[in-house]
Each structure stands twice: as structure tokens, then as C-alpha cells.
Simulated scan of single mutants.
Amino acid sequence: MTPDEAIKTARALPCWTAVSAAVPLDGGITNHNIRVTDKGRDYVVRLGQDIPEHGILRWHELSLSRAAAEAGLSPQVHHVEPGALVIDFIDSVALTENDLHDEATLMQATDLIARVHRDMPRYAHGPILAFWVFHILRSYAHDLRERGSRHTPQLSGLLDEADMLERAVGPVDLVLGHNDLLPANILRAEDRLWVIDWEYGGFNSPLFDLGGIASNCDLPRAAEEAMLTRYYGHPPDTALWRSYSAMKCASLLRETMWSMVSEQTSTLEFDYADYTDKNLNRYRAALAAFTDKDT
């Protein structure tokens, strides 16, 4: 679907009364996002089908979107039909990596993550998927081999590293996580932060969201310690820091292998090869730091 086709599809949805504008929004590398103005009120239309290779099932995204809205964490759902999800538009700006290097913003984001983990299960109902990163990594490796990926020669080594990281993570608490905390999925409105995009939500360790936001923003050690202290209510001890660091590496490896798969399967206009290289370099750096401290 081209951007023009996406706009045409968004405008044609039956939920509108008098559309006056429809423009594409930045972001979105698994779907098209269109801002639609109807009778003076703005909405966001998310257009996308199931993506089984990434575990994206739109019925599940809808269920979590509704739960997050009821919890006051995400915009309200306005309309849904196959291939389209319409939510309220929030007058806001998406956070950037640099924003989360500001201590006050990072603490606000940490509080938001804690609310997701604490409050979401109270509002979710029906089937909810699990999101265990190490299972996902093994599934990605299988798919990459089946498709003859250019990355196949390095998969055995990456899986060996994943096995080591899974052992290092150890036993985990279980929360309902977001599991895709790119800074752009956190919106800053005038008075608060919001979280959007529930494609990958599911039960997981809280360390995945915490490690994900740290790795996606390249946070320094002091900021990571402040984030963990805010979340847990006490500074991280040696065991927590090791488990967290291993999960942070795993989150980077998942983003890398997600992009490897997307190089072959996605039809969106996005430079996945460059995204793979960027995240692979981040993963290698994080793994080197982890193994250096672990020896």
C-alpha cells in the first residue's frame, strides 16, 4: 500500500461524518498511520494486517489497546474493522532518544512503565499472548534460515549468545508489558505522557521494557541505575543488575533479528538493512560490556 492508497483507505472508513483532512504521520514501520480530521476532531488511523512472522495479530493489538485506554495509558479506540484501527489523536510530540537523557523525562517514563505493568492486567480480559524474547529469537533464526537470509552464517553464534543471556536473566517476575518501547511510542502531551502501539504487548519480565528503553536510547550507566531505582524503589543489587543487563542485550538482539526478518518480508518503504546494521552494532557493544563485567 502506497501512502496515497493509505490516505484513500483511511478517508473511506465508515466511521466518518465529514472528513476535512487526512495526512500521513511520521513513524510506523509495520503499518501506515494517517491523521484524519472529522467534524473538527482529529483521529489516528492505523492500517495494517496480521504479520505472523513477528507475532503481530491485530485482534490482540485491539484487545490491549482497549485495556490501555481503560487504564488511562493510551488513547481511546474510536473504530475498528479488519486492517484498520482508529484511535483518538493526542495533541503531543513523540519522545526522542535525547529526550530520555533528561532525568526528569526519564523518571516520568519510568513511572509510566510501572503503571503499564501494574494497571494493565486489571483491565485486560480474554486471551493475552506471552512475549518471551528468547523464544522469539529462536523463531526468527528458524525463519531466517528457511528464507535463505544473508545473515544465516552468523545465526548459530547469535543463538549461542542468546542461550547464555537467557541463563543470565534467570527467574523473572511476570507483568503485562508493552515490549516495544522505542522512544517514539511515548508521547509527551501538555500535562502528561502517553504510550501507544500495542502490536507486541504481552506477558513478559519487567526487565524487557526497562532494558528496551535503555538500549533504544543508549542510556548511560548512571541513568540506568536511576531508572531501576525509581522502578523498584531501591538501588539495583548485583543480581538485579546482571539480570537486567542480560535482558537489555536480549532486547537489542531481538530488534536486530526483527529487522533481519523484515529485510525479507516487509513491503513498507524503509531501509531495514541499515536498521539491522545500526542495532547489530548496539547489540555487539552491549554484549561486550556485559561479558567483560561477567568474566
Rank of each mutant, 00 (worst) to 15 (best):
L219V: 00
E199H: 01
M247W: 02
S215D: 13
T238R: 15
C249M: 09
D237W: 03
L253E: 10
A246L: 07
P235T: 01
Y231F: 07
A223R: 03
L210T: 01
Y231R: 05
C249G: 08
Q264D: 13
A223C: 10
M227T: 01
C249V: 08
K248N: 10
E199Q: 07
P236I: 00
L219N: 03
M257T: 07
Y232F: 13
A223P: 14
Y231A: 04
P236E: 03
G233A: 13
S243P: 00
K248A: 12
P235Q: 03
V261C: 13
E263D: 06
R221A: 13
A246M: 11
A222Y: 06
G202V: 09
P220Q: 11
C217Y: 04
S215G: 15
G233T: 06
D237S: 07
R254N: 11
N204W: 03
C217F: 04
G202W: 00
H234W: 15
D209R: 02
M257S: 11
G202C: 01
R242W: 06
S259D: 05
S259C: 13
S215K: 10
M227F: 02
G201A: 15
P236V: 00
M247N: 05
M227I: 02
L240Y: 01
M257D: 07
L210V: 04
L253A: 11
D209T: 02
G233W: 07
T229A: 03
L228W: 05
S243Y: 02
S245D: 06
S243M: 05
M247F: 13
V261M: 10
A250W: 00
C217P: 01
P236F: 03
L210K: 03
A246Q: 05
E263M: 15
T256I: 10
E224C: 04
P206L: 06
L240C: 06
R254M: 14
C249L: 14
S262I: 07
L219C: 06
T256W: 10
E199A: 05
M257Y: 14
A250E: 09
Y244A: 04
C217N: 01
L219W: 05
T229W: 05
G212A: 10
R230Y: 11
M260A: 15
M260E: 12
E225T: 04
P235I: 01
S215F: 11
G211N: 02
P206W: 04
A214Q: 04
S205I: 12
A250F: 00
E255A: 11
P220G: 11
R242A: 09
S251R: 15
A239Q: 08
S259L: 10
E224I: 05
P206H: 04
S243E: 03
W258I: 12
Y200S: 03
E199S: 03
C217A: 11
D218H: 12
W241L: 15
F203L: 15
S215T: 13
A226S: 00
L240S: 04
S259H: 12
T256K: 09
P235G: 01
N216V: 06
L207G: 06
Y200M: 01
L228M: 09
N216F: 08
Y244K: 00
Q264C: 09
P235D: 02
W258T: 03
Q264E: 12
S262L: 10
N216I: 05
E225K: 07
A222I: 06
L252G: 08
